[in-house]
Design a protein around this nucleic acid. Structure first.
Length: 444
RNA sequence: GUGGCUGUAGCUCAGUUGGUUAGAGCACCAGGUUGUGGUCCUGGGGGUCGCGGGUUCAAAUCCCGUCAGCCACCCCA
């Protein structure tokens, strides 16, 4: 079919039909309500950002995954006319990759925001990644962030907000993994691993629970890290998992002490909130995004390869947009990830879609009469569809069944004459004349 | 980016060691005469078998390429 236009959406992007939309809205409405209950205020930012805003914030792999917007018209012609053309010459805008960087730009741009700006943002983001199960090129993030505070209370609040969302959605078994960038850095240094191998070591460590200690040894050896260093690191990590290891480390003033103290303060601050039961210290948690500086978080859930969400503290990001360094911490939930698990586990309540009543009109009834009745029914709060065509009653009822309407209201000349409809319950087949004003009471 | 699997009707799939006009179920449309659906019966529309090339008297079937989709890994939400 070379001449036919493909009717599929682009790779990694999806259409959402009614049943999908109502499930998505169900989740989003809970996210929004819970976030607002924590005092966060909404923010929406443009789909497109200047490339200067986006580039260099996510690490080299991140830059590769940015969707870029090609120059138009003269600007494109001029760019193409230049001798050597690079990616940077062809575009100066791109689709947003996450919601954190746009927030950082906004905070740097609007200097009259409150000192402590608590915002939530629920919008799609785009990544030119290879699609896989639970991974799309267009997906929604549900972010909560607090800017302007270095206090660990802010960290505790964002953790509490996402934990409360998951609890209200019906998740019970998730873990909120925590670690600390400074602590990690100290552990790697302690193992005698050179600072330039640090990023490498962290990425591999992140996989420890998947590939095992031998896998980590092998992978780090391939990257040029000496075996005894890797063993030292693994031993230090194992020791750090011990129950009071954090407390011991926090007491001293050695490397990582401050990170350990941060984490202990965080656990203490969360104790009275919804995150308490889910917090888990995981010294191997690394997280890829380059801008994290302090505590880092990730939501893990049984049966899901990736995470439901992630976040952390990023005290240097906003400063990249202006002279003023403003600390910040945030958390992001992945809508599609939550939906995936909820679908697999059947966690949705019954969600009404479509009309509750299909108004069937006999061919000898004027359309205006049907619309008048439908208007009265809608005024009672009912969702009502008027069958558009003058068709046989059987066809109209078949259509009602097809779209899943629970009731049909039949309007013939006799019903018009006495201000009633024949209301038919399509589940039981029972029917009878009902005054138009009484229909809602019968349906509900 | 790496490895594997799969491409036949709108959807889920049959299609024998290559062999006449490529099938089923579901969905859709129409009928089974008057104002009764979801069950049942009958009929109908819809596919150049992902695309391109090769082997052969003959290809949905075998070979090569290509594109697309799915799964795992990597990474992430």
């Amino acid at each position: 079919m070379s001449h036919a236009i493909s009717t599929k959406p682009p790779s990694g992007m999806r259409d959402f039909l009614a049943p999908d939309v109502v499930r998505r809205r169900h989740v989003l409405s809970i996210v929004q309500r819970v976030y607002e209950s924590f005092g966060f205020v909404p923010l929406e930012t443009p789909t497109i950002e200047n490339l200067g805003t986006l580039l260099g914030k996510y690490g080299p792999e991140g830059d590769q995954l940015l969707y870029r917007v090609l120059h138009r018209r003269e600007k494109l012609q001029r760019a193409l006319a230049a001798g050597t053309v690079t990616e940077l010459d062809l575009a100066d805008e791109g689709l947003r990759y996450d919601l954190t960087v746009p927030l950082a730009r906004v905070v740097a741009n609007y200097r009259d925001l409150p000192t402590f700006y608590k915002r939530y943002q629920i919008q799609p983001v785009w990544r030119a990644d290879r699609p896989a199960k639970g991974r799309f090129r267009e997906f929604y993030q549900c972010d909560v962030d607090v800017t302007g505070s270095r206090s660990i209370v802010a960290d505790a609040e964002v953790c509490g907000a996402v934990a409360q969302v998951l609890r209200e959605l019906g998740f019970a078994d998730f873990r909120l993994l925590c670690n600390h960038r400074e602590l990690l850095r100290a552990l790697v240094a302690e193992a005698g691993i050179a600072p330039e191998s640090e990023a490498l070591a962290l990425v591999v460590l992140d996989k420890l629970d998947k590939v095992g200690a031998d896998g980590v040894r092998k992978e780090l050896a391939e990257k040029g890290v000496a075996a005894d260093r890797t063993d030292a690191l693994l031993a230090i990590l194992a020791a750090t998992r011990a129950p009071d290891a954090l407390a011991v480390r926090a007491r001293g003033d050695g490397p990582g002490a401050e990170g350990a103290r941060d984490l202990l303060s965080l656990f203490a601050a969360c104790a009275g909130g919804p995150a308490a039961a889910h917090l888990t210290f995981d010294p191997t948690l690394a997280r890829g995004l380059g801008y994290y500086t302090g505590p880092i978080f990730e939501i893990s859930c049984a049966g899901l390869a990736g995470s439901l969400g992630g976040g952390g503290r990023y005290d240097n990001l906003i400063g990249m947009f202006g002279k003023q360094q403003i600390p910040a911490v945030g958390f992001s939930l992945g809508l599609e990830r939550m939906l995936l698990v909820m679908e697999e586990r059947g966690m949705f309540p019954s969600l009404g879609i479509g009309p509750e009543v299909l108004l069937c009109r006999m061919s000898d009834v004027e359309a205006a009469a049907a619309i008048r009745v439908a208007t009265q029914l809608r005024a009672q709060g009912l969702r009502v569809e008027v069958f558009a065509e003058a068709a046989k009653l059987g066809a109209q009822l078949a259509y009602a069944s097809r779209i899943g309407a629970p009731f049909a209201a039949i309007l013939g000349t006799s019903e018009v004459a006495d201000g009633s409809v024949t209301l038919k319950d399509l589940t039981t087949g029972e029917q009878g004349k009902v005054a138009v004003g009484d229909v809602a009471a019968r349906v509900r």
